[in-house]
Design a protein around this nucleic acid. Structure first.
Lengths: 211, 211, 211, 211
DNA sequence: GATGAATGAGTGTTCATTCAT
DNA sequence: AATGAATGAACACTCATTCAT
């Protein structure tokens, strides 16, 4: 089971698939082309992958799971920290920065895969993955927001509160997407993080004050 | 040419096309379905529209041009204003707010068409229209940024300056997209603008200070 | 609409389809072969027929409808006659014979099509058409049976009655199938009808007596 | 060869195959599914069975052979009896009834397998097995018919004789098929046999008289 | 005795587009 | 201004079968 030959075939298929998905996007990608490029018949592809979608998930699934793992850990840690929060607490951004750096590094390690997920997944089962992450962040940011505002419960949030927090969650996510799609290297991305942090922290204050 | 009959046919085609594009997105939309729904043959469609892409542009082109017109006017006006700018000038946000309201109203007047452009255009020649608008805004924002920073020329901008301005341009655009896609009505969108303004102004200050 | 050209194409497709369905049966028939034989592209086929099943129905639908029409008429007429039935009524078989002859003539007029329906329809939406006809005959034969038995209502039928009537309905249908598939010509079939009538009438008496 | 392991594998394959053939019929049955369900690889299947057809015969072959054996015995016995036949001989139906009961019992013992043969074998080498049995019965019934008619040789049979005897042979077979496919249990089937016997005996008399 | 990988031809179906009329 | 017929390539996917190990 899983000898060198089959691993090789799978690897060739994934490489070839990645290339095709990047070039044409999920929908326009042709399984025939992918197989031809991999030097394999369509039957072989279907031995290893259930269908087109499964192949796509084969390409991006690993990196996606890694990202989810980091975010989950981060959210749990920050939740722990929120419990110790008092109005006088100095906001500690160092942790957030550390996580941001971690995420950026991950994004650039699998740059192609994440770009696939962000811009080429339309038509696949992962086409809404970015929104799903943003929605998850939204839940978390709501907690943060309530704590900072001194709300006892999320039920105290107004419609306007909810809307702006939702926006900020999305924006947070968009920052990483922007870094990934507009920086040539991890190095450059890490250099730009600081300014972006300045921006969103400014934004948070703008919101907290005015609301 | 252009008698009542043909206008009617075109109108039916555009309606039917809009419906299909909304339902399935540009790529998966079927011209056959569009024609069937419009009660017209494919030949008729090809008499009025060069190809699928042309039909798509027929649906969203008008609203898109209106938007471009507003943005252009706004940019030209603000450019005029920038010339009168001195370090002591009180920043006048009223104009910006007025424009934002104008844009929001426009977006909601043709809600379906703009959503088409934003989320369903993949595969068409307009798939990058949002990025193009953002890039245009970027040019403009660079001017604003330089003026506020007291730069004599754009050439004084560092790589970091350019990056953060680019981001802010994109983010500005994203705000409108967010309003369009997350508010049910123009009314609700207009209510949320204020908080978003608080956010991005906070963001600008965060950036200007820290850079 | 429906000019000579298109009619010709449809005709060629139906001829070619009939041939292929006869040779291989519905399931194994290849639309590609059918199109190739008809000198037409697959696209053309799909312009005239919704799918494989529709094509099959295009081949056998007409004859099938004719048969249904005859049966329906026959059933209605016999129902009328039953109302005038008294225990002393001499059973009039002439009408039945006339109908049988009519049916046989029809079957042989479209011999190929009916054979298709009877033996090659597996996999299509018409695969159970013979059973459906038999079930319809069953309803009718139940009426006849009850009248002959002097039952006031079908509810008087025992389980055994129902079973044997069901069998006889099926058998009646099978006679025609047997004639179609074992006689070379209409002429020969008509010659054999008499003996078969002797058989089933004998069968009826055997049943009526013993039950 | 033939140790416990292999027997188990074969058994699992046969079970799984039976299930799939019943569900989808011979043609649409998928060997892949059968293997998956049996928890076995395709290679294993091909070690024990030559091909799809061989597997099908593996499922239904045993019961089929048992049936052939009964029929053969019965035919031989009846042939023996025919030799002692004189015009005055009282027809002894008891033997026939006994055989019929024996057959019904067999059919219901392997109900699934026989239904497979009757209704789901299309595409396999056994698709005509019912007709073959009927044809064999036909040979036998010709003997019976000639004896009863006082013919010295089968050559005295007219075309019409042959036809009606052929029909009766088929019908005899169809009775068993009808019992199998329309009765829920052996018990119920045995209860219905009597009426069916009344029917075909009536049919025979109808034929003998009229010819 | 059995595995797991691979074949390669085949399936029905859909598509945007063209063009003579 | 519009029809209706036709193209032909492409699509994702399934199949029974083979074979080295």
């Amino acid at each position: 089971m899983g000898n060198d030959n089959s691993k090789e075939t799978i690897e060739k298929l994934l490489q070839s698939a990645k290339k095709e998905f990047i070039e044409k996007g999920y929908m326009k990608a042709s399984l025939r082309n992918i197989c031809k490029e991999a030097g394999v018949t369509t039957g072989a592809l279907y031995f290893f992958f259930k269908d087109k979608d499964d192949l796509f998930r084969g390409v991006v699934g690993g990196p996606l799971r890694e990202l989810y793992a980091i975010l989950e850990t981060h959210i749990l840690e920050e939740l722990e920290e929120l419990k110790r929060y008092t109005p006088d607490t100095e906001v500690n951004l160092e942790d957030d920065k550390a996580v941001a750096i971690q995420v950026v590094k991950l994004l650039f390690r699998y740059k192609e895969e994440y770009e696939l997920l962000i811009t080429k997944a339309q038509g696949s089962s992962l086409e809404n993955v970015v929104d799903e992450i943003a929605d998850q962040m939204n839940i978390h940011y709501s907690d943060v927001f309530c704590t900072m505002k001194g709300y006892k419960s999320k039920k105290q949030m107004t419609k306007e509160d909810k809307f702006i927090v939702h926006w900020m969650a999305h924006d947070q996510v968009d920052i990483f997407i922007h870094l990934l799609t507009h920086c040539k290297s991890e190095k450059e991305a890490l250099r730009q993080i600081r300014a972006l942090f300045g921006y969103i922290i400014g934004g948070w204050y703008g919101v907290i004050k005015s609301s």
